[in-house]
């Protein structure tokens, strides 16, 4: 019984990965691609690792460490990349919002 539950969790996680890849392919702009790629794949990773923990309960501690690590590092690296993309003035699809229409140097000072 726990095997079927674990495999269903793995299937949902794989579906999130599939949607991350699809978003990376179909989105119109570099920033939206980064957003699609990071959010969905982090959650998909967490679900797949929890699903594997259903199969092998003895592995839970190391899988939990892996989930914690992916949750900590994936958003931070995507944030650093998006900041760099803003600083080198990658073009956005559609008109930029008014507050960010000023010089990109404003993105470098402050947090």
């Amino acid at each position: 019984m726990s095997e079927v539950a674990g495999s269903i969790l793995v299937l949902i996680g794989a579906f999130f990965h599939f949607s991350a890849g699809l978003g990376m392919l179909r989105m119109p702009d570099a920033f939206t691609r980064m957003q699609a790629g990071t959010k969905a794949s982090t959650l998909g990773n967490a679900l797949i690792l929890i699903g594997i923990a259903f199969y092998h309960p003895g592995w839970s501690l190391k899988l939990l460490i892996l989930i914690y690590f992916v949750f900590m590092t994936n958003p931070v690296s995507s944030h650093a990349l998006a900041r760099a993309a803003r600083a080198i003035r990658i073009p956005m699809a559609g008109p930029p919002p008014q507050a960010l229409a000023s010089a990109p140097a404003a993105a470098r000072d402050g947090a």
Binding site: H17, R33, G37, T38, S41, N45, A84
Partner: peptide, 16 residues
Amino acid sequence: VDRVAAVDLLTVISIS
């Protein structure tokens, strides 16, 4: 930046 983000996605998928 597109390519770097694609490589990032590839590595996260390969972790799972």
